[in-house]
């Protein structure tokens, strides 16, 4: 049997006026793979991700996510993926339980299923004592672990994580990655962006975007060999250094809403 691709992008492009934010990127992500999506600020990561999760229509090219076409089936994509970002993940003014119930409802789970999942999730994360506390009162690391679990509630084929560990303490950051490994081991595909280069090393394969294009895509090991360096940080610095990132596109426009 052919290995299943959960993402297939072919010459995917997005332009804003004369500016090309994403320039004909092509790649595949396999079932159960942990795929790192790296790039400097303004390189086009967020724009590319928005197209893949079905909230921004490409200007050209093709892409399918979880078997659905990004042009004609964005609603099906949204139902079949999980998404979590550093900026927004859960409602601070709802309790732990309420957040799980709310998102379960959004994903269309039955009441019975929501109840089951809620109990399972709370016990897995050891949140029994604080399940009636407002999420806003939890430490950031707990929030992020809960948010990740919530993004998996409906058993999506793939989950998109946009800088999930920013600002999280080093121990919790690693617990978070253990959760990622576990989900991937169970067959969920992980698509993750990060600015922590040690996290890039945890990925099965990594792509690096520079000025709208994918300039490198391989396993961390092979990328390090290719660029003759010891760490992903050095790979990144070699690739993304030119031209000056201070003057992105020579214009300094804000292109990715960062």
């Amino acid at each position: 049997m052919k290995e299943e691709n959960v993402i297939e992008a072919d010459q995917l492009t997005k332009t804003f006026g004369e500016f090309t934010a994403v320039n004909a990127i092509s790649f595949e992500v396999k079932k159960g793979e942990i795929f790192g999506f790296l790039g400097a600020n303004g390189a086009g990561k967020t724009t590319a991700m928005k197209m893949l999760i079905g909230i921004s229509k490409p200007s050209a090219g093709k892409a399918a996510v979880a078997g659905f076409d990004v042009y004609s089936q964005p609603e099906s994509i949204k139902k079949n993926i999980g998404y979590m970002s550093q900026r927004f993940a859960l409602y601070d003014d709802l309790t732990v339980k309420e957040n799980i119930t709310f998102f379960g409802g959004i994903y269309g789970l039955s009441r019975k299923k929501i109840r089951e999942k809620r109990e399972q999730l709370i016990s897995e994360l050891g949140l029994e004592n604080i399940s009636n506390k407002l999420v806003g009162s939890l430490p950031l690391g707990w929030k992020q672990k809960l948010a990740f679990s919530v993004s998996l509630l409906h058993g999506p084929k793939i989950v998109f994580l946009d800088e999930p560990t920013g600002g999280v303490d080093p121990i919790t950051r690693r617990h978070f990655w253990e959760m990622i490994y576990k989900a991937a081991d169970q067959g969920t595909t992980i698509f993750v962006t990060t600015h922590y280069m040690d996290e890039a090393e945890y990925c099965d394969r990594v792509s690096i975007m520079v000025e709208g294009k994918i300039e490198a895509l391989d396993t961390p090991k092979k990328l390090k060999e290719q660029f003759k360096v010891d760490s992903m940080n050095d790979v990144f610095l070699k690739l993304a250094r030119i031209p000056s990132p201070t003057l992105p596109k020579g214009k300094g426009e804000n292109t990715d809403c960062n």
Binding site: G39, A40, N41, A43, Q86, E163, G166, G167, H195, M197, N233, F236, L237, A240, R241, P245, T246, N258
Partner: peptide
């Protein structure tokens, strides 16, 4: 440098 990519952080 929070949320800033490694190249800009180095600079």
């Amino acid at each position: 440098t929070t949320g800033v990519d490694p190249v800009s952080r180095k600079e």
